[in-house]
Design a protein around this nucleic acid. Structure first.
Length: 514
RNA sequence: GGCUCGGUAGCUCAGCUGGUUAGAGCGUGGGAUUCAUAACCCCAAGGUCGGGAGUUCAAGUCUCCCCCGAGCCA
């Protein structure tokens, strides 16, 4: 089966920030999980490159829009490479194949009678690429978000007849599970209940956009064009740009992950566009929360922006991924606190998980010839830790497809805690001092190492690098069998050599603020 | 202004349809231990559950009002 998921197509106004990194990491974890589960995954990300705002940003720098996009997009590509993001597609809305797709899509909407022309007058914010509701007689109005002057517009635009879709959109968003998390549903329902208004999908005098076929001088409104990038991405499989191929190419997406700020576009406008064009709507739209830093909104004016490049450079991908996925309920807002970040990473990854592996491997090597204790496979079955391990596997399997990363992390962690507690209870180091305990110590150490192996495997989608180091440390050969086959109690090779223990996770010691 | 979501230990949060002494993790203090990355394990202190009123035998949990924060729409 194909499982497709998307991040937003990030606007190339600036290089990647922590927010887009967060979204992308979460999607990466989900994509990796689905792949391990045996799905054929299409993990889509990309960039949204059109619009007046880009045109102006480029002009300010004295370069062509294309040049500006190339520069910023290169930053995105480089960032995702450094973070080890496993996306299958990376789409640019300026790539040649996108244009015919947008035009074909538009023509379907037009043929369906969902496009009309109309006059649009009002105050416009270029930052938002949106008309604002300031009264016409306002003098020098400002955008509350961007703190920049609004511009007066009076132009003939093409409109998408969103009003035609009132009932269908209501039915869609009432479907449980379409909008996730459920807590965000009501807001959208209220918005829709207020009556859907047609929205303009073209601009005049914006050169940096895709031309609207049959309407001289109009280019597509950036949002219209950007949303369609998801489809272009899926059709970038070597085949033609043909909307009829989408079903085979992975559309509809299983989940589209976005920040809560753009939920409306994805849960209302976008499905209506798709309905008009006779295409299926995404199965789920997940609006996650925002990150603050030490309790404050991050922003240039406050000068407290946390740079993902710095974070990666100083702390590494594993630490950051773990903290974000483990500490923040995906969907809710979260606060990045440096103290908590280091505490959690050190406690969970270095102390609890890393040290468990380290201490157990040391004992096994010391008393069992530098190897996993050689017990026969039947002896592993029914060990006290087996039930805990199996329950953990189950919990991770349930949490991950629901994007409940926090629950998955907690489940894994609790297995490591159980195993640590078990070791202290059994105290194999003292029992080894009396003769005759070798067999039971062997069995216990095997069981704890087996827990480590399962912890390592389960961590694979969440913190892939650390996962690899754990499995390496257990002397696991490169995987020949599938994840599912390996996620079975007792698959650790008894008697196989254990390498010299090395800490798999260094403690974070940040001497200066990030 | 209307609406939505939050306000529970120092911090991040759990607390389902109301029911014994309000929970977890982190942080803090103490103990135990040496297999281990000053790690692991155990124990403890810490909360008038934003405020007020009401419903009830019984409310963090329901109702109303107010205060604070975030957001959506005007």
């Amino acid at each position: 089966m194909t499982y497709s998921l998307t991040t937003p197509l990030y606007y190339v106004n600036d290089r990647p920030h922590l927010g887009s990194t967060y979204t992308t990491i979460a999607c990466d974890a989900l994509a990796r999980f689905q792949r391990l589960e045996g799905e054929t995954v299409l993990f889509v990300t990309g960039v949204d490159e059109h619009g007046l705002k880009i045109q102006r940003t480029a002009a300010d720098q004295g370069i062509a829009p294309r040049e500006h996009c190339d520069r910023i997009t290169a930053r995105y590509l480089e960032a995702w490479r450094q973070w080890g993001i496993s996306n299958d597609r990376f789409v640019r809305t300026t790539e040649p194949r996108h244009r015919p797709l947008v035009q074909a899509f538009f023509q379907r909407c037009e043929a369906a009678g969902d496009i009309r022309s109309g006059r649009q007058t009002g105050w416009y914010c270029v930052g938002c690429e949106e008309f604002k509701d300031e009264p016409a007689e306002a003098k020098e109005p400002c955008c509350p978000l961007h703190q920049k002057p609004l511009e007066w517009r009076d132009e003939e635009n093409l409109f998408f007849c969103l009003s035609h879709f009132q009932e269908r959109i209501e039915a869609l968003i009432n479907q449980p599970g379409f909008i996730a998390p459920a807590s965000r549903r009501k807001e959208i329902q209220n918005f829709v209940a207020g009556g859907l208004r047609d929205f303009s999908i073209s601009r005049v005098n914006v050169a940096w956009g895709l031309p609207v076929p049959g309407h001289e001088g109009h280019t597509f409104y950036v949002w219209f064009d950007a949303l369609l990038g998801y489809l272009t991405a899926l059709l970038n499989d070597g085949g033609d740009v043909d909307l009829d191929r989408l079903g085979a190419a992975g559309w509809p997406a299983d989940v589209q992950v976005i920040g809560k700020d753009i939920l409306r576009f994805h849960a209302v406008y976008w499905p209506a566009m798709l309905m008009s064009a006779g295409l299926p709507v995404p199965k789920r739209v997940f609006g996650h929360g925002f990150l603050t830093r030490e309790g404050q909104k991050m922003g240039k004016s406050l000068g407290n922006v946390l740079d993902p490049e710095v974070l990666l450079e100083r702390c590494g991908a594993d630490a950051v991924r773990w903290y974000l996925l483990r500490d923040i309920q995906f969907g809710d807002d979260g606060d990045f606190q440096q103290q908590r970040f280091t505490d959690l990473v050190n406690n969970d990854l270095a102390n609890t998980i890393g040290n468990l592996l380290n201490r157990t491997a040391s004992m096994a090597r010391k008393w069992f010839n530098d190897a996993v204790p050689p017990i026969d496979s039947s002896a592993a079955a029914g060990h006290a830790l087996q039930a805990d391990a199996e329950q953990t596997i189950e919990r991770v399997r349930q949490a991950m497809p629901e994007l409940r990363f926090q629950q998955a992390c907690e489940a894994i962690l609790s297995l490591a805690i159980q195993a640590n507690g078990y070791l202290n209870e059994q105290a194999p180091w003292s029992r080894m001092k009396q003769p005759g305990n070798e067999a039971s110590v062997a069995s216990d150490l095997y069981a704890v190492l087996e827990c480590c192996r399962l912890v390592g495997l389960l961590l694979q989608p969440l913190v892939p690098d650390l996962s690899q180091r754990i499995l390496d440390q257990l002397g696991e050969a490169p995987a020949v069998s599938t994840w599912k086959e390996r996620l079975i109690w007792g698959k650790l090779n008894a008697g196989s050599p254990l390498p010299q223990p090395q800490p798999v996770m260094a403690r974070l010691e940040l001497d200066a603020p990030l």
